[in-house]
């Protein structure tokens, strides 16, 4: 059993298809939804953790792709722009999982570890420099 973080991007005409239902029912996967924005007549985004045997996950994701939904296995919905970050550290006390953290304490440099991010979005409003934003 493995767990994979995937970001589904739905084109405008696809937001009404029950993708999650099929992943659970047909592929026997555990789907944990972190964040979703599915608006009729607009693009949709769904960020999930899928858990199951590796081959079943691969089959499930192939089904999703075949349904014309983009599957992104490397990105998440929260964007941290290293170029805008000044490493002030104002976000650190607001990130509940330590995804935003001091990566080098001698230099007091801030870094972002996407796998730890649960997309609570707290950092977006507290960052004084707009370094954190959301894809959706």
């Amino acid at each position: 059993m493995i767990t994979k973080r995937v970001l589904f991007s739905f084109p405008k005409d696809m937001v009404e298809k029950p993708i999650v239902y099929h992943l659970v029912k047909d592929y026997d996967l555990v789907v944990n939804i972190f964040r979703a924005r599915i608006t009729p007549e607009d693009e949709g985004f769904l960020l999930v953790d899928v858990t199951g045997p590796e081959d079943r996950i691969a089959e499930g994701l192939a089904f999703v792709r075949a349904a014309n939904v983009a599957v992104n296995e490397s990105e998440i919905g929260l964007r941290w722009d290293e170029g805008l970050c000044t490493s002030c550290g104002n976000c650190l006390t607001h990130c509940p999982t330590g995804a935003l953290k001091i990566v080098d304490r001698a230099a007091m440099k801030v870094g972002f570890e996407p796998p730890l991010c649960v997309e609570c979005l707290s950092c977006i409003s507290v960052c004084p420099f707009g370094a954190c934003s959301s894809l959706f």
Binding site: S87, C88, G89, L92, P128
Partner: peptide
Amino acid sequence: VMTGSLSSYAK
């Protein structure tokens, strides 16, 4: 108490 900062030591 967790500490946060507005100044940047790195900068």
